[in-house]
Amino acid sequence: MTQLKIGFLIYPGVIQLDVMGAYQVLAFPPNVQAHLVWKTLTPVVSNEGLTLTPTVTLADCPPLDVICVPGGGLGQVEVMKDAEVLHFLQQQATSAQYVTSVCTGSMILAAAGLLQGYKATCHWAFRDQLAMMGVEVVPQRVVIDRNRVTGAGVTSGIDFGLTLLGLLCGEQVAKMTQLMMEYRPEPPFNAGGPETASKEIVEPLLQLGRPLVDAFLAQTKDTIAQIKVDN
């Protein structure tokens, strides 16, 4: 089987399950070499307080078959305006088979100019902001548009990973991976999206997340302004 190099961008404040849900799936086949990519090899602390250790730097990262960008907390705001990171993504995108994201990682791709003119998805609370950046937002768990593959919020990284694995290695390998993981979700509550959760659940969550939403919105507006200047 052809060797595949898959790189996951990590950074301080990244949502660890955005990374690890997809990583667990995509690292299963023996022909996959998975990398955790950041500026240095110094461990970074996720939004949840878990420590993740990069395996390769931006400068030393080989050309990737797949580049995957996860979402994050307030640390993502810094990444969205980091010229070094955005340039890295742009360079990798020129040769990658697939340019991908999980959750609000699609906003980082959009900040790098890599999703304009494509259909994509992200966490439900940030769809409007992604649309502001010139992306055709589709409210689905996983969206494929040519060689762009994007997953919605957090846990969708598993569905995203299985979908992408099917594209890379075939349906049989993806199904074997699903079986290995015993992935057959039966959530105890029907509150996994704003369409099914009650207002008594949605509204307090939005209030709790308001500082993050506002920070993302401010950076989104700055990114839009920068894109206009560049064009």
Rank of each mutant, 00 (worst) to 15 (best):
L86Q: 06
G13V: 09
T177F: 05
D214E: 13
A34E: 02
T53C: 13
G72C: 10
T104P: 07
T51F: 04
L64N: 00
V135G: 00
V77I: 13
D145N: 10
A27Y: 00
H35G: 02
P54F: 03
F160W: 11
G21F: 03
A125C: 05
G72I: 09
Y11A: 12
Q97C: 13
V99H: 02
V142N: 02
L41D: 00
L9P: 00
C103K: 02
L162S: 10
G75R: 10
D230K: 13
R210N: 10
F28P: 00
Q76F: 03
E182T: 13
W38E: 00
E203Y: 02
Q16G: 00
M107C: 11
Q3D: 15
T55R: 03
E78R: 11
M176L: 15
T150D: 08
N190L: 14
A110W: 00
T57D: 06
A125G: 12
A120K: 01
N231H: 13
T150V: 10
L17I: 08
D159M: 13
T150A: 05
F8V: 04
N147I: 09
I67R: 00
I67E: 01
D60Y: 09
Y183R: 07
T2R: 14
Y98V: 12
I201Q: 02
L52S: 05
F28T: 15
Q172F: 01
Q3N: 13
N147M: 08
G192Q: 05
V213C: 08
T100H: 01
L168Y: 05
S46C: 12
V138M: 06
L205I: 12
G72Q: 02
Q219V: 15
P185K: 12
D230M: 05
G193N: 14
Q226A: 14
T2N: 08
M180G: 07
H87R: 12
S106I: 06
V213Y: 11
A218D: 13
G161S: 14
F126N: 07
A34W: 01
V229L: 11
N47V: 02
T55P: 07
C169K: 10
M20Y: 12
S46D: 10
G49L: 11
C122I: 04
V135I: 06
